[in-house]
């Protein structure tokens, strides 16, 4: 479904070139969960953002291909790409409080992709939005619909983020450390919710994390990155039973010491 090959990305910061990705290659099959694990600065987020070219203006993709259902996304024009974003490929980000616009109600924001991509009328979008809120297990959907992000908890906002991303039934969901800012019980709930939604809707999940215990719980395959390179990629169990690369072993060592009880 998603095939990234030989991706090179660098950032141009006022003359200094910083290499973010050096030949990254990975793939996500249909209905599969791939976890991309690595430390901060390993290039995981840059990889995720490159898929639909959401990188800041100082970033340049210098080579590589990103195939999504046969099309190379890097070759698509802005218009075509916008149709893909949100509709075929959706994102959820780390800080639920920041990707929600504080001056609009939550309901307004959920309706936005519906009105934009699916051309629903306002009444239809309203009904659909309430359905989405129920899907992500938010009780009192009407009350939440008319609330503002700052009135709701982090966990609630993250569920809304998930609801928004599912609005157009995407085929690929890219989640960038969605539970890092949440406390442990909420994290468990969000992860369970994601797994349930995935089995109901059948999308593929690309999950970025620095925490191997999360990867172990939800991923079919794990891809380990370090400083812009993919250092190892394998089925989850194989990564844990026989890690090959030094950095994979480092991640596992941390996981065993303090990532799990």
């Amino acid at each position: 479904m998603l095939e990234i090959s030989n991706l090179h990305v660098h950032f141009d910061l006022n003359g200094t070139i910083v290499k973010a990705l050096c030949g990254v290659a990975l793939g996500v099959g249909p209905k599969e969960t791939l976890a991309v694990a690595g430390e901060s600065g390993s290039g995981k987020t840059v990889t995720a953002l490159s898929v639909t070219r959401l990188l800041p203006s100082s970033a340049r993709v210098t080579s590589g291909e990103i195939y999504f259902n046969g099309d190379d996304l890097l070759l698509l024009g802005e218009g075509a790409l916008r149709k893909v974003r949100g509709k075929e490929i959706a994102y959820i980000f780390q800080e639920p409080g920041t990707f929600l616009n504080p001056v609009y109600t939550v309901g307004n924001q959920i309706m936005e992709p519906l009105l934009l991509h699916q051309g629903l009328s306002r009444a239809e979008a309203f009904a659909e939005a309430l359905k989405l809120l129920a899907l992500v297990r938010i009780k009192q959907g009407r009350r939440v619909f008319f609330s503002y992000p700052h009135q709701l908890s982090g966990g609630m906002n993250q569920r809304i983020g998930i609801a928004m991303s599912l609005a157009c039934r995407p085929r690929l969901l890219i989640a960038d450390e969605p539970t890092t800012a949440l406390d442990v019980t909420t994290e468990t709930e969000i992860l369970d919710l994601l797994c349930e939604l995935k089995s109901n809707f059948g999308f593929s999940l690309l999950f970025i994390t620095h925490n191997l215990s999360i990867a172990r719980r939800i991923a079919d395959r794990i891809c380990v990155m370090h400083k812009g390179f993919v250092v190892e990629e394998a089925d989850t169990e194989r990564i844990f039973s026989s890690p090959q690369h030094f950095h994979t072993k480092e991640l596992i060592r941390a996981y065993q010491a303090i990532g799990t009880l």
């Binding site: 430390e39 901060s40 620095h210 925490n211 191997l212 480092e250 991640l251 060592r253 941390a254 996981y255 010491a257 303090i258 990532g259």
Partner: peptide, 10 residues
């Protein structure tokens, strides 16, 4: 902090 950094600090 990342888990690996956490371990090093501990």
């Amino acid at each position: 902090l990342d888990l690996t950094i956490q371990l090093k600090l501990l």
